[in-house]
Amino acid sequence: MFFHITLERNMQLHPRHFGPHLREKLVAKLMKDVEGTCSGRHGFVVAITNVEDIGKGLIREGTGFVTFPVKYQCVAFRPFKGEILEAVVTMVNKMGFFAEAGPVQIFVSNHLIPDDMEFQSGDMPNYTTSDGSVKIQKDSEVRLKIIGTRVDATEIFCIGTIKDDFLGVINDPGAAS
């Protein structure tokens, strides 16, 4: 799920940036430092939307750097266990398939794919029902439920399932043609 949250960060600024454009410098540095990063607690920071407040700077002894506490709002993406969302299939193999929902990768193991779907190897590996009516392959859109998350320092990785009511393929690019 995407969230609009308020975060705080202490920014260090080199003395050469002090002057009439201090605020702009600080905001530019904040965007460069924070956008695109990921933390286990807040998820992926997609975009900063607003800088709410820049506090009083504190000069660091010895270096001349100044630390500013900055309060900003941003769009963040954080997956939760139990959450149901839609994702695009990126890779299919006999172990299961990988899907992407925005910045996050989700793996669905073949144990969590309905039993009536069989793996088919070939040019376009896929999972297909015995009557061939439903097919999961690269670029399919699926609706899945997140059942586990693994949080790294710089990445969040999810395990999902499509073995439940109202989950599974929602759009198959191959079926239309």
Binding site: M1, F2, H4, I5, V75, F80, G82, E83, I84
Partner: peptide, 17 residues
């Protein structure tokens, strides 16, 4: 567990998009 709306105080108060 999002199914029971247990997503942590911080995110519960935050605005979802």
């Amino acid at each position: 567990n999002a199914a029971e709306l247990k997503i942590g105080e911080e995110f519960l108060r935050a605005k979802c998009l």
